[in-house]
Design a protein around this nucleic acid. Structure first.
Lengths: 221, 221
DNA sequence: ACCTGAACACCGTTCAAGT
DNA sequence: ACCTGAACACCGTTCAAGT
């Protein structure tokens, strides 16, 4: 036994492992998005031959799948805040949005790979609890939970798309010039500005929860 | 002048034009999505050399852009139905959803290319009208319009993603087994079933509009 | 058990050359 | 004005061969 660990081509590099590959891949995705993760760039990053990666992770698709699975597991629990069910549901929605936005590239990847339900399990259970507290039961409760869930995912997807394509042509300013809504200049001004996604989200969720649970100052039906 | 139109390599094929290229590209996208539109497949479809396409449309990206622009122009006007502003806003939202779903591959493409505002102009003006009729003005009216707009786009995006990845793992049935919510078996049953997107959409939009305009049977604030 | 290079079948795009 | 093939720089993946 001349050497316990026969040195590979580049002796300084530590042995390749599934973990190393996943870590490097995660860093590439985090920095430049999934489309920037090519097997060849990844190999270059790791200082190995492209084909070595295949030994450890199978192929590109299962590499991405493993990445997604890992991120979903890392997603934190949701802690509702507030006194009324209304306030607590809104707080869950906001927390959900924050978590999703913290992993911008991964939302779409999770969705495409069918892991959305697992990703939302913790939030879903929290929502069930609050919706119950608000007096909803059975199918109606389920509908309320799913309405909130869909809305949050939808908003985050819209926001992501907007961020990727910030330049809007023709552009709302031109569409909502002073003559367009002369009877309500305040509205025209508001629509001419770029929307504040945070604000749109909050307004929407509040209104949605109002509609689902009954208005905050009115008793549940 | 031996021949008024010197025949190309394949004499049966009519002369290539920007229109022909766009039509063939549109058909490819409609059938198999944007990722199936490769310049080489398109050339094969048209019976030309790949490079001929570049002469007519520049490159792949501007080809897709032209496609999107054309679809946006084709999008029909929205005709609100119903007696109350509430009903009419809901009808606009449903019409919007139907139009978007009629061009499944193009929603994302429109969004990525920043044409969403133009695409929504007609609907936005209809929404402004209804929201005015409901008594909202200025910034509040603008918020309501945008809340509806974001929600519809969001829902359609979520639905599209779900359709592309119909298999959910672990799967809600396993997550919502009988013991999970024993105190409300109706809820557990409802959540164990796959959601009906149409139903979730309707419930969400109704609740959202309730919250934005005031409940349908209560006066506007 | 792990790593390698060569090879295959794909991409989008450029360019000089044809008519 | 329009069309062409050759060439370039990229992909993901397979495979036989090395240690």
């Amino acid at each position: 036994m001349p050497s316990p660990q026969p040195s590979p081509a580049s002796p300084s590099r530590p042995r390749l492992s599934r973990e190393t590959v996943l870590a490097a891949a995660a860093s590439l995705v985090k920095q430049h998005g999934p489309q920037a993760l090519t097997m060849r760039k990844l190999a270059a990053e790791l200082g190995t031959a492209v084909t070595s990666i295949y030994w450890h992770v199978g192929n590109r698709e299962s590499l991405l799948e493993a990445l997604v699975e890992r991120t979903v597991r890392e997603l934190g629990d949701i802690r509702p805040r507030g006194r009324t069910p209304h306030a607590r549901v809104v707080s869950i929605a906001r927390a959900l949005r924050r978590e999703l936005r913290a992993h911008p590239h991964l939302i779409a990847m999770v969705h495409e790979r069918g892991l959305t339900e697992r990703m939302f399990l913790s939030a879903q259970q929290a929502l069930v609890h609050e919706v119950h507290a608000a007096g909803l039961r059975g199918a109606r409760a389920a509908e309320a939970v799913r309405a909130v869930q869909f809305s949050v995912i939808g908003h985050v997807l819209v926001e992501r798309n907007r961020e990727r394509a910030p330049v809007q042509r023709p552009g709302e300013p031109e569409l909502w010039g002073p003559e367009a809504a002369e009877e309500d200049p305040g509205l025209a001004r508001a629509l001419a500005r770029a929307p504040d996604p945070e604000r749109v989200f909050t307004v929407s969720v509040r209104a949605l929860v109002d509609g689902l649970l009954g208005l905050p100052d009115s008793p549940a039906p």
